[in-house]
Amino acid sequence: MAEILIDYVREEYEDAVLESHSRLGNDTVVVDKDAVPDVIQFLKDDDRCKMNLLRQISCVDYDNRHPRFEVVYVLYSLQHKHMLLVRAPVPEDDCEVPTISHLYRTAGWLEREVWDMYGVTFDGHPDLRRVMMYEEFEGHPLRKDYDKQDGQPRTEFLSRERDSVEEFNIYVKDRDAAGSRDE
């Protein structure tokens, strides 16, 4: 659709771009994961790009490839009506990407979903907890090594009423198994 976008990114961030293609009509740039906020900020602010709608943040688990994960950002501009996919490969041992929740407010939930399903942490995210699974869930369901038939341990009966957001966060975030973030 708009391959010119790839050229804009390449000329600004030459060293961060690893690869780019336009297969099947989806223009894609593959960038280094630490350059992600800068590239996306450039794409959002620059007048030629003006990508003001973040459509999706998704993650793909390539099981037998290094780097294992690849986080995909789908950006769209309502003014110029062009779309760009920005991908960042994330290795398994360094499973962290800087957050873009300060650029788009919808990234808050989308990044929470990626953390919930794949276990990729977002550095600097204000509120990284599970969004679709319950808080005591162990593991990250959409990873390829999480078997479809896997079971979960029984949760204990909570003795206090979870009716305060602050108490709830404190109670859940301070426990060991909360969100399996320590694995």
Partner: peptide, 12 residues
């Protein structure tokens, strides 16, 4: 992967 509009609306 699905970009479901309802989930994004719930986020906001």
């Amino acid at each position: 992967g699905i970009r479901s509009p309802s989930m994004i609306h719930m986020g906001g």
